[in-house]
């Protein structure tokens, strides 16, 4: 009697990559719904463009690399990259910019380094930075949230704006777009206004910018779901938020009139999304428990530094990429104590 020979352990394994990536996508849903609610159909259209491009690019590259296509498409990793990039882009980003960004993320950042698991940089963030430095104007033209938007665009109008660059006759780009809250805060602080003066503007809500703070809350909900499902561990989000709050809180205490309240930092820009969905990308993050704390903390700190003194209003993408570079070194110096290690306590 001949029997099949395999190696242990035996049994149906409880976890798989598709489940991990699928739960990340699921966790993004509340935040995406909030984005669509506050900023219109453009968000969904961007996601559609990005995902289609990502899957096509992934399939194309794998065919060129003579690797099996189906397992890579079904692991949903390209979809996650595409969605993360799409929701970081302004809602009316021209379609070709989204396509360019996704192609860069999948082909250059992911596959030229060996594909899933081998890329040193977060593909979505690398692509975002590429677009930001190449098209700074387009990338900062956000729509005002629905509560303040006097000219909401219909689905068809949004489609034509994204694909044809055309707006309805009575509108111009300047009338429908506005700066992001982080940008606005920055500009007005440069004009030597005090925080209390700036806060008079109706764009500010309870603790962050109106609309934005709720997007942050819904992404936070998704992040907690990921923690509960054990897709991510608490280390990176906790340390990243702690880093940002500590730095911003310290400066705010000394100078509350020219330094924004820490809560504003937390719920503005890509901070919550970054802390739970982007910095936690396991491939490019630090991998030891202590290392993840260091990695997260340094990202939070870097975000504050760049936002306050750097050249860009938001900084999550830059901070994440910088720490991607540092991750291997962080891992090397934060190895855990091995069971029974012959150290002082256990000679």
């Amino acid at each position: 009697m001949k029997l099949p020979v395999h190696t242990s352990p035996y049994g149906s394994l409880p976890n798989n990559v598709t489940r991990v990536m699928g739960e990340v996508l699921l966790a993004l849903v509340p935040g995406i719904i909030a984005l669509v609610y506050y900023f219109g159909w453009g968000v969904l259209i961007n996601i559609g463009i990005a995902v289609t491009t990502a899957l096509a690019a992934e399939a194309g590259v794998l065919r060129l690399r003579k690797r099996p296509v189906r397992p890579a498409l079904t692991d949903l990793s390209a979809t996650v990259t595409a969605v993360l990039l799409a929701i970081a882009l302004p809602p009316l980003t021209p379609w070709w910019m989204t396509v360019l960004g996704v192609l860069f993320a999948i082909v250059m950042v992911k596959h030229l380094y060996g594909g899933l698991g081998y890329n040193p940089f977060n593909p979505a963030m690398a692509a975002y930075v590429l677009l930001l430095v190449s098209f700074p104007v387009a990338m900062t033209q956000w729509l005002p949230p629905v509560l303040l938007n006097e000219h909401p665009l219909s689905f068809v109008q949004t489609l034509s704006a994204i694909f044809g660059g055309g707006l309805p006759d009575h509108l111009t780009w300047d009338t429908i777009t506005s700066a992001t809250p982080l940008d606005a805060m920055r500009e007005q602080l440069k004009m030597n206004k005090t925080i209390s003066e700036i806060a008079q503007n109706p764009m500010w809500g309870d603790f962050g910018a109106r609309g934005w703070e709720w997007v942050g809350n819904w992404f936070l909900l998704g992040g907690l779901f990921l923690l509960w499902r054990k897709v991510i561990t608490w280390h990176i989000p906790f340390a990243m938020i702690a880093g940002l709050l500590l730095a911003s809180g310290l400066f705010w205490l000394f100078d509350p009139e020219s330094m924004p309240f820490p809560g504003f930092h937390l719920f503005s820009g890509g901070m919550i999304l970054g802390a739970f969905f982007i910095a936690t990308d396991p491939v490019t993050a630090a991998t030891t428990s202590k290392g993840r704390l260091v990695y997260g903390f340094l990202i939070g700190l870097t975000v504050f530094i760049i936002r306050t003194w750097g050249g860009y209003p938001d900084a999550v993408a830059f901070a994440v990429l910088l720490m991607n570079m540092a991750a291997p070194t962080i891992d090397y110096y934060t190895q855990p104590r091995v069971f029974g290690a012959r150290d002082k306590d256990n000679a």
Partner: peptide, 28 residues
């Protein structure tokens, strides 16, 4: 076959660290 199915094809390591969390020898 249900108790011990043939092994799946391995996919790339995504460095998620689940193995580290499960390792009783506290290795990486």
């Amino acid at each position: 076959r249900e108790e011990a199915p043939p092994p799946d094809k391995a996919r790339p390591c995504i460095r998620c660290g689940k193995c580290m969390d499960a390792c009783p020898a506290q290795l990486l």
